[in-house]
């Protein structure tokens, strides 16, 4: 396989939230991640793992309680953390785009959907309002909205959930980004709608040579739809591997536990197991070096004090951060 220069490089990214009652919560801890051009990567984690914060950090859309304490983010070689606000505005949409879980609240309720897409086009260099409107209709047709010329005049409330998510995708794709981030974009949708939306994202990614970052809690969805999966637990990346390998040959105890907790077509109740305990409070002063420590059945004293050791397969495709991997 040809080695491509990564599209996105994240190195040792650490991020903390200032808490209202004082103190800080370490939300991301030394996260490193690459996405190759046209690659589909899934970032899988449970609620509170920091996966959505990571997406917002990539777009620099964090609120002011959040502070990036260490690390760097580069997209196509450009340093994102030190880019000017003006430059960031340009990059959002044109290079990086995101679709969120709740399309209903991400669309402007009082503006026709065609107009909203045209707005994005106009913000990213399109001069003529007429041309923008025509392209907006094309975009809607491309994401599978039938009778797009008429539907472009619809308001968001006139559309179903799956339809709104299609509009969100059209919006995100309007300025032909290099990387599309889908943050729980199909959570809460019916499985049949989810399948359609995921198919659409996949098609569009292939047609536009776009990389995708799928942020999800659903390992099965990640495995089916992505080339590679990275697993995050309490702000730490614990393992990343090609999708099928992660599901069949996981090496991190947390990934293994997550797999045995996920019901799938081959599951029986007997082989389904919960993960004991819960993720640690990231505001605690005495966080162990490996944040899975308290829940782990392979822990030793080492895991408490020494940051987890990174081990990679020979081709570097399978990386695990653990002192005692399986």
């Amino acid at each position: 396989m040809p080695v491509l220069a990564p599209l996105l490089t994240v190195r040792r990214l650490s991020l903390a939230f200032a808490l209202p009652q004082g103190g800080r919560a370490s939300v991301l801890d030394g996260l490193s991640l690459d996405i190759a051009p046209q690659e589909a990567l899934a970032l899988v984690g449970e609620s509170g793992s920091g996966k959505s914060v990571f997406a917002l950090a990539l777009l620099r859309l964090l609120d002011r309680h959040a502070e990036i304490t260490d690390g760097e983010i580069r997209i196509e070689g450009e340093d994102l953390l030190h880019a000017s606000d003006k430059r960031m505005q340009d990059l959002r949409g044109k290079t990086l785009a995101i679709i969120f879980q709740n399309p209903a609240s991400s669309l402007n309720p009082i503006r026709r959907i065609g107009r909203q897409i045209a707005d994005v086009l106009l913000a990213h260099g399109e001069r003529s309002a007429d041309a923008a409107r025509r392209r907006a209709v094309q975009m809607l047709a491309r994401v599978g909205i039938q009778d797009a010329a008429r539907r472009a005049n619809a308001y968001p409330f006139e559309l179903s959930g799956g339809m709104k998510q299609r509009v969100m995708i059209a919006l995100a794709l309007a300025a032909s980004p290099r990387l599309l981030i889908a943050d729980e974009a199909t959570t809460g949708l019916d499985v049949t709608t989810q399948a359609m939306v995921m198919d659409l994202i996949h098609e569009q990614a292939r047609a536009n040579n776009m990389a995708t970052l799928l942020i999800t809690h659903d390992l099965a969805l990640a495995a089916e739809r992505c080339d590679r999966i990275a697993v995050i637990h309490a702000g730490q990346l614990v393992e990343s591997a090609p999708a099928a390998r992660l599901l069949t040959a996981a090496r991190h105890p947390y990934t293994r536990a997550l797999l045995t907790a996920t019901p799938h077509a081959g599951s029986t109740l007997a082989n389904l197991r919960a993960i004991p305990g819960q993720a640690p409070d990231t505001a605690a002063a005495d966080l162990p070096a490996c944040r899975y420590y308290a829940r782990c059945d392979r822990r030793t004293e080492l895991c408490k004090s020494l940051p987890p050791m990174q081990t990679a397969s020979s081709n570097g495709a399978h990386v695990v951060a653990c002192h005692h991997p399986l």
């Binding site: 396989m1 999708a243 390998r245 040959a249 081990t311 397969s313 081709n315 495709a317």
Partner: peptide
């Protein structure tokens, strides 16, 4: 979906 050449060898 195994990628070519990703046999697992642990460092």
């Amino acid at each position: 979906h195994q990628l070519p050449g990703s046999a697992l060898i642990i460092h």
